[in-house]
Computed example of a mutant assay.
Amino acid sequence: MTPPTEPQGRPANQGRRVAARNRAALITAAREVFAEQGLTAPLSAVARRAGVGQGSLYRHFADRDALASAVLDENVRQIEAAADRPDPDLADVLGVVTWHLTRSTAFVDMLRVRGDGEQARVLSDRVRRVLDRCLPPGHRLTADDVMLAVAMVSGAVAGPAPAERERLALAAWRLLGIEVGPLRPHETADDA
Rank of each mutant, 00 (worst) to 15 (best):
A68F: 04
S69C: 13
A70W: 07
V71D: 12
V71A: 10
L72G: 05
L72K: 09
E74V: 11
E74T: 13
N75T: 12
N75M: 08
V76A: 13
V76T: 15
R77A: 15
R77L: 14
Q78A: 14
Q78P: 08
E80K: 07
A81P: 02
A82V: 08
A82Q: 09
A82I: 06
D84A: 15
R85E: 11
P86M: 09
P88F: 11
D89L: 09
D89T: 09
D89E: 11
L90A: 00
A91S: 15
D92K: 07
V93D: 04
V93C: 09
L94D: 01
L94N: 03
L94A: 02
G95I: 05
G95T: 06
V96S: 01
V96K: 03
V96E: 00
T98V: 03
W99C: 02
W99F: 15
W99Q: 03
H100M: 03
H100V: 00
L101Y: 07
T102F: 01
R103V: 02
R103K: 10
S104F: 02
S104Y: 01
S104K: 00
T105M: 05
T105N: 07
T105A: 10
A106F: 03
F107V: 07
F107P: 01
F107H: 12
F107M: 12
F107K: 05
V108N: 08
D109C: 01
D109E: 14
D109I: 06
D109H: 10
D109P: 00
M110I: 05
L111Q: 07
R112N: 05
V113R: 11
R114A: 11
G115F: 02
G115D: 02
G115K: 07
G115M: 06
G115Q: 03
D116R: 07
G117T: 00
Q119R: 15
Q119M: 14
Q119T: 08
Q119C: 01
A120R: 04
R121H: 04
V122S: 11
L123S: 01
L123T: 03
V127Q: 09
V127R: 01
V127P: 14
R128H: 14
R129Y: 10
R129A: 15
L131N: 02
L131E: 04
D132Q: 14
C134V: 03
L135P: 03
L135Q: 02
P137Q: 12
G138E: 08
H139G: 13
R140S: 15
R140F: 11
R140M: 14
L141E: 12
L141K: 10
L141T: 07
L141R: 13
T142Q: 12
T142F: 13
V146N: 04
V146R: 06
M147Q: 13
M147V: 06
M147I: 04
M147L: 15
L148E: 10
A149N: 10
